[in-house]
Amino acid sequence: MRIGIDLGGTKIEGIALSDQGQELWRERVATPQGDYQGILQAIAGLVQRAEANLTLTGSVGVGIPGVLSPQTGKVKNANTQCLNGQALDQDLSQLLNREVRLANDANCFAVSEAVDGAGQGKSLVFGIILGTGCGAGIAVNERPLVGANGLSGEWGHNPLPWMTPQEYPGSPCFCGRRGCIETFVSGTGFSRQYSQLTSHNLPGDQIIHRMRQGEPAASQVFELYCDQLSRALAHVVNLLDPEIIVLGGGMSNIDELYPELNRRLAADVLGRECVTQVVANRHGDSSGVRGAAWLWGR
């Protein structure tokens, strides 16, 4: 049995999978706010209840909203601030009396889709979460690619390529720079660009509804969004050349994205040809927690 934990800012979700990927158990609890010891106990409680309910012992993988520094062995870049500077894997290993594997939540998404999701059978999968922010992860032969600095997949904090004069220098990003890919292709960026054009603040789903009703401004912003995301994905293809790119997060639910991106991408890639397909995820909101469970492989 493989137990996966998805540690989020507001909830912690646990799942238990069989060796074949069948879901055996699932539970969610609220994330203790600003309480590192409380988070440790909440994760341990999920693991213990899974094993008690199923009368099985499992491996444990945890997806986190940050990375484990290869240099210090401690968490960095986590939105859940109390995790930063903590040896989370070691503390959980001691608490649970077994090795615990950690990975960035976007890497868990990529692993999930590579193992038994939309990227199944592909050796190099680039997984992107387009939500409030923008995260990405890389799975190579169903394993997360971490990198020497723990930063593999942090594509959203590179500058948007080939900016137009209207786009330059871009909006400020929380990372301290301007014009990051995240500020354009996240759901927040999509809404911001609509607001700049119309002076109306609307969530992405309402903008898409207006686009489908034929509103010119919504159609214009969606066209711009597709162009920006295609340019950003071309950098991924030029650098990594993945076999498949899998989208997750709220923006991935827009069906019109896929034909547009697959039509545009070749024109933005070096050599003007591209067989890499951009596809929707298979496991939806469950992909992160499933990927955490699959950190132990099949």
Rank of each mutant, 00 (worst) to 15 (best):
M1W: 10
G4C: 13
G4R: 09
I12H: 12
G14S: 15
Q20L: 13
Q20T: 15
Q22S: 11
L24T: 03
L24Q: 12
W25E: 05
V29L: 13
P32H: 02
Q33E: 08
L40P: 10
Q41A: 13
L46I: 01
V47P: 07
R49L: 12
T55M: 08
T57P: 08
G58Y: 10
G58L: 04
V62L: 03
S69R: 11
Q71G: 05
T72L: 01
G73N: 03
V75W: 00
K76C: 07
N77T: 14
A78H: 10
Q81Y: 11
C82K: 03
N84C: 04
G85I: 01
G85A: 01
A87R: 09
D89K: 02
L92Q: 13
L96I: 03
E99Q: 15
R101D: 09
R101Y: 12
L102G: 04
L102I: 12
A103M: 08
A106N: 07
A106T: 10
N107C: 02
C108T: 07
S112M: 03
E113L: 09
V115G: 09
D116P: 03
G119V: 03
S123G: 01
L124G: 02
V125I: 07
G127A: 03
I129A: 01
I129C: 02
I129H: 01
L130C: 01
A136G: 15
G137T: 08
I138H: 05
I138T: 04
E142N: 08
E142G: 00
R143C: 06
L145I: 07
N149C: 07
L151T: 14
S152A: 14
W155E: 00
N158K: 13
G170R: 03
G170P: 06
S171Y: 14
F174T: 14
C175K: 09
C175Y: 05
T183Y: 00
T188N: 08
G189T: 01
G189C: 03
Y194M: 00
S195G: 13
S195E: 15
L197M: 10
T198F: 01
T198G: 01
N201K: 11
P203G: 10
E215H: 02
E215M: 09
P216R: 06
A217S: 10
A218P: 10
E223L: 11
Y225E: 09
Y225R: 09
C226G: 02
R231V: 04
L233Y: 06
A234D: 02
H235R: 10
V237G: 01
L240F: 14
L240E: 09
I244Q: 00
I245E: 09
V246M: 04
N253Q: 13
E256W: 07
P259I: 11
P259C: 06
L261G: 04
N262D: 06
L265S: 11
A266Q: 11
D268N: 11
V269Y: 10
R272A: 10
V275D: 13
T276L: 03
T276S: 06
Q277A: 12
Q277M: 11
A280Q: 11
H283D: 07
V289C: 12
G291A: 09
W294T: 08
G297I: 13
